[in-house]
Amino acid sequence: MKILDADKLPDLAAVLAAAGYRVVAPVRDGAQVRMAEWKPGLAIDAGPIPANSVKEFLFPRCEVIARYSLDGDSFAPQPAPVDAPKTAVLAVRPCDAAAMVALDKVFNWEYRDDAWNARREATTLVALVCAAADDECFCTSVGGAPDARLGADAVLRCADGASKFILEALGEKGQALLAAAAGVLADGDARPDPPASVPVRFDSKAVTDWCGENFESPLWRDLGLACLGCGSCAYACPVCHCFDIQDEGTRSEAVRLRNWDTCGLALFTQHSGGHNPRPDQAARWRQRVMHKFRYFVERFGGLACTGCGRCARLCPARLAISQVCREIDEARKAAAK
């Protein structure tokens, strides 16, 4: 059994950095703990659930997908190399790791996205078994668990009353990481601490079924009233993956960019002629719930939600998709009686 003292996460980060990994880890930043690129001297705080998901390290907010040199009215393509550094993500939450598996499907279901695949291949996800959860966590309602291993290449688990970590490799990438970290790992025994307890808040199957019959529902109108129409929930979500493609440039160079985008923003579906198929926030909330709990299931055979709860923690109006799902589930049960 490979053991690491609880306060030695920075040592693990340092040894991995020395072995050529870009290390991403939860670090404190003002009032938040954020997943960020670790630099020597930074403390690692694996306690709170990070405000941002791991998504941005595999699917950046903004990425150059094509590049052109410009010369008057003519242009010529230039290389736009994919940035896919060898990366170790420490203490990624199981909900985030599972989300990457959902995104694998999106980026490969027909056309294969080289950038996503290259970064995925270059990234080793070291999941942290959640020792605590908060009232927005709902992984157990969407098929996950605080100690789930889906998508993880290695697992960190608190042990001996949070005084140690047990580090376990789950595959080749994990084994390579453990080998690189051998210098800071000790062989020994430790008793794993129990994982957090996350109550099941709703039956996701019931939500999927309900969505199939309730494209028109007063629920959407009510949600649409409170929703402010920002992109906070989608950008915090580890599974939301919608993007925009925009060109920008100077007189001598143009870049084609892939930027995060979201169905919550009014312009997302706006036609240039003015027609908008989703004209209000009610239609956009419906799309959010339907996509995560029905359309994604139909298309890819799983939910597009891993229960991390970030959308609710960060929503300026404190709307929570888990509560929406719970109300749907309860309404369905009430109707069945």
Partner: peptide, 12 residues
């Protein structure tokens, strides 16, 4: 550098 351009500031 942290800004994701979600425009929650504007929306709120």
């Amino acid at each position: 550098a942290k800004c994701t351009r979600c425009y929650a500031c504007r929306a709120a």
